[in-house]
């Protein structure tokens, strides 16, 4: 299955739900195992929350761009916000003792844990651009 969609989403929690549902539906159509669908769905959810809440600060004037590419047994999702961007190296490690009991700050950890490839950079416009890739199977890599 091959596919490409480029969607602009409002900066609210409904967009988080719809993005997750859209990507999970594509993964199911491509034959991803149920666990892999849920893993990918969670990673997308975390990336969308990051974009909507931290990047765009729920601003009605800002949008999140979601690019979904399905190709050759892999799904690649790019999520771009209109915030200030961030440096992954500056984000505190939530598994370290002093951060372990913090109530937030685990989203990036979970994104990285539940996809096969993860990267983040500053988009040309200055916001965060997160790329998540998940393969349908180990042999699909």
């Amino acid at each position: 299955m091959t596919g490409f969609t480029d969607t602009l989403l409002a900066s609210n929690l409904a967009s988080v739900d719809s993005a997750e549902a859209m990507v999970v539906e594509s993964a199911a159509a491509m034959g991803f195992e149920e666990d892999a669908q849920m893993d990918l769905g969670l990673a997308i959810r975390e990336a969308m929350v990051n974009a909507v809440a931290h990047g765009n600060a729920y601003s009605p004037d800002k949008q999140v761009r979601l690019i979904l590419e399905a190709h050759g047994g892999a799904i690649r999702v790019t999520i771009i916000d209109q915030g200030q961007g961030f440096d992954l190296n500056q984000v505190p490690d939530p598994t370290q003792g002093e951060n372990l009991l913090r109530e937030s700050g685990r989203g990036l950890l979970l994104m990285q844990a539940f996809v096969d490839e993860f990267s983040v950079k500053r988009s040309p416009a200055g916001g965060a651009e997160v790329v998540l890739v998940k393969y349908a199977s180990e042999t699909g890599r």
């Binding site: 975390e46 929350v49 009991l101 109530e103 937030s104 685990r106 979970l110």
Partner: peptide, 16 residues
């Protein structure tokens, strides 16, 4: 069936 990082954070809040 499902918990995200916010849900995990709420478990931590409950604990603390």
């Amino acid at each position: 069936s499902y918990i995200d990082s916010s849900g995990v954070g709420e478990l931590v809040y409950s604990f603390t």
